[in-house]
């Protein structure tokens, strides 16, 4: 069942309280982030309907927003999502090679997830780290000044954490 826990509900209430009375819809973006983090890293129709109910808005208002913004995943994704920037400034510093290297190493193309469900490779547009290119986003944080060696180390690190958590 898709339902927020007590602590998640407290956070939900904190988010809604930031806006004027009757403007609870304003909390939609942060609440969707909360829902995505709470329910497996993606937004199912069920999750979105639940958010609509909590915010007392029509489900379509949630779908419209969830599909507009690129950070909401509408399908399940790998446990570790490598979002590699490919826009001009990163391209100038070799982001294409990094994307190719990751793809080769994990045997996936951009947009795909490894068979074990551990890694997803995604190409994205500028993330505001152009001076530290090439770079990628991994979870909440950025990994910058990427080299092949760094990519190797990151993949190892992910595999280790995944193994430790199992």
């Amino acid at each position: 069942m898709t339902k927020f826990s007590e602590t998640q509900l407290t956070e939900f209430n904190r988010l809604v309280a930031r806006y004027p009375e009757g403007k609870q819809k304003s909390a939609l973006l942060p609440v969707l982030h909360l829902a995505q983090d709470s329910f497996g890293g993606w937004l199912s129709s069920e999750t979105m309907d639940y958010v609509a109910e909590l915010l007392r808005i029509a489900p379509i208002e949630v779908y419209e927003v969830a599909t507009f913004y690129s950070m909401y995943n509408l399908k399940p994704v790998g446990k570790y999502m490598f979002e590699v920037c490919q826009t001009g400034p990163c391209m100038l510093r070799g982001s294409d090679d990094i994307v190719a290297y990751i793809g080769e190493k994990l045997s996936i193309k951009p947009g795909e997830t490894t068979a074990d469900g551990l890694f997803t490779l995604k190409t994205v547009e500028c993330l505001g780290a152009c001076g530290y290119a090439p770079m990628m986003q991994l979870g909440k944080h950025y990994r910058e000044h990427l080299t092949k060696e760094k990519v190797d180390a990151i993949i190892d690190e992910c595999r280790k954490t995944a193994a430790a958590n199992n």
Binding site: L29, F68, Y69, E125, C126
Partner: peptide
């Protein structure tokens, strides 16, 4: 602080 969600 309001967080966006990926849209230039």
């Amino acid at each position: 602080v309001q967080r966006g969600a990926g849209a230039y």
